[in-house]
């Protein structure tokens, strides 16, 4: 299972349970998140605390999600560190996603 979905303080949280998100995992990640959007989610948290590595194909899955969410939705990223944080910075995607150091901070932002 790629991600565990649960509700915390009224916010939908997807906790990624993989250390590496690359082209082998990106299609499942994309489908999981788009299914959530299509089911009505408008603002949710993606917890990347366990993710040690992410490539551009996984990043593309997140971009697909934020585009499907549209201007009224929001994808909050929690726990991006090391290589993952660097990927967001190099590609400037830290200006697209709302990125927080912890899940609690991301949840608080999603509630606002």
């Amino acid at each position: 299972m790629l991600a565990r979905r649960h509700e915390q303080d009224g916010v939908t949280v997807f906790e990624i349970d993989e250390a590496r998100l690359d082209a082998a995992k990106a299609p499942e990640l994309r489908q999981t998140l788009l299914d959530a959007v299509d089911a009505g989610a408008q603002s949710f948290v993606l917890d990347l605390t366990r993710v040690e590595f992410m490539d551009s194909s996984a990043l593309g899955a997140l971009i697909s999600t934020v585009k499907r969410l549209g201007p009224l939705g929001a994808l909050h990223i929690a726990g991006a560190a090391g290589s993952v944080e660097k990927l967001f910075a190099i590609t400037r995607m830290d200006r697209v996603f709302r990125i927080f150091p912890t899940r609690d901070a991301a949840i608080a932002a999603a509630q606002a």
Partner: peptide, 25 residues
């Protein structure tokens, strides 16, 4: 350049960054 229009997220490409990352790094 990885630059994009922050006011037009709908136009943001979902792919095409791989070779650019490879070259930049």
């Amino acid at each position: 350049s990885f630059e994009f229009d922050e006011n037009d997220i709908a136009a943001l490409p979902e792919s095409g960054r791989g070779l650019a990352l490879m070259v930049a790094l």
